[in-house]
Nucleic acid binder design. Structure first.
Lengths: 243, 243
DNA sequence: TCAAAAGTGTTCTTATTACACCCATGG
DNA sequence: CCATGGGTGTAATAAGAACACTTTTGA
């Protein structure tokens, strides 16, 4: 039997990739570190997990302290445990991502938040620790999720236009979508409610506003329905027989 | 600034769901615990992670000590960190699953292995710790993976028949597949090599043997090809418009 | 009247499903 | 010659992809 005591010398943290969407751009909330290690670098919001706290609660705590938001979409992604990933000791981190409506984000929820800033996902670079790798893993998972589950709506205001929704998908999937096919498909799912309202004060034909019908989705789910929004399998190179 | 020392009092383990396939049955390798806690219960093979060892290495170590196998398909699934999940202290565990060819499994690779036994996935019950939950998460992931990546072949001997392959998919997906459609689809991917050999000693028309062409798959992958074997979306209840 | 984005259908192509009989072997 | 599983094709349906013009508003 091994001496268990030797093993109880490590720590674990949660790191949270908080996604937001604004003006056709997918964004992530980062914090400028005020202390060593990696002082002055941008980092994912994260924290040690308390001894009486489970992982999901810790991720929620980090999220709430930073944004003031509770009951937000939050999902575990992957755990990173390279031996030397943290200079202070053996620290593994459990990565989560969350999806928030960027307008709900309250900048002054805490002092912690004063160093926070939204960054366009495409322009993020040079993060502290292994956070670039963590961000990448979370972004890849988001890309997969958004096709098979209706999580995109978590990033939009309660009322949105179809074009906004399409731009959201385009930002996440990093591709262009065909307007007519996109609308045909999303409307055929019968998960959007036409609010019979239109945009106001826009310098063009105002778009109709929709909301996502969460209740109806839950009902469909229970009946075995699978959300699937899979346009653009990119250039699927069809394998050909070859010697 | 918080006192970091308080956090460096926990431990982490890896637990490995080792899948095998035999006689149309998906199996998982479990160990009968010889000591407390949970003495006498079946558990997933797992171990504490050493201080100089990353998570993937630890999972590989557990796998090799138990089976004697190296370079096996291994993927991280999820981390479980309920506060009271381990009676000895705060221990979070990182779950992995691996896929092995059951014939390669060497029962006497270590003393550790003497208490190991293959269990049909459908008959597993009453595991130690939160291992039932872990097993379930890994099985769910395997179901998803097997549709979108050619990982099933990791569970089959190098030469296999199309019926064996179909039975593997049926066991993992827990569904029946249409023989002609399955063959049409898998062969149209051009990822199988017809070895021009047949079964011997079977009391029926002998089946042709195939192997998976890993090299060709890597080439196709690089060209943007996406493996997709998605027959049976079950009864997809098509949502209908409703008040 | 111009600019800007909203909104709308059809055709073509490809993928998926459903389905039944003959074949090769060992016993 | 029987039992067992191997092996094969076609027709109907559904889903996906490509594509261009008219409408409504504010400035």
């Amino acid at each position: 039997m091994i001496d268990l005591g030797n093993f109880f010398k490590s720590a674990f943290t949660v790191d949270n990739v908080i996604f937001g969407f604004d003006e056709a751009d997918l964004k992530v909330l980062l914090i400028k570190r005020g202390e060593e290690p990696y002082q002055g670098k941008w980092a994912l919001p994260g924290h040690f997990v308390y001894s009486d706290e489970d992982l999901h609660s810790a991720a929620n705590r980090v999220l709430e302290e930073l944004t003031g938001l509770k009951n937000v979409y939050l999902e575990q992604v992957k755990t990173f445990g390279a031996v030397d990933r943290h200079p202070v000791g053996r620290v593994i981190t459990v990565a989560y991502y969350s999806l928030i409506k960027i307008a709900d984000y309250n900048l002054h929820a805490s002092s912690f938040a004063k160093k926070a800033k939204w960054h366009s996902i495409s322009k993020v670079m040079d993060l502290a620790f292994d956070h670039a790798e963590i961000l990448d893993a979370c972004f890849q998972l988001l890309k997969r999720r958004v096709r098979r589950r209706p999580v995109g709506f978590e990033l939009l205001p309660p009322k949105f236009t179809l074009t906004e929704l399409q731009h959201l998908y385009e930002a996440i999937l990093e591709t262009d979508l065909d307007k007519r096919n996109f609308r045909k498909k999303i409307l055929s799912m019968n998960l959007l409610v036409d609010l019979n309202e239109v945009q106001e004060g826009v310098a063009h034909r105002p778009a109709r506003l929709y909301k996502f019908d969460q209740q109806k989705y839950q009902k469909f789910l229970a009946e075995g329905y699978i959300f699937d929004l899979s346009e653009s399998k990119k250039k699927v190179v069809k394998p050909r027989s070859a010697g």
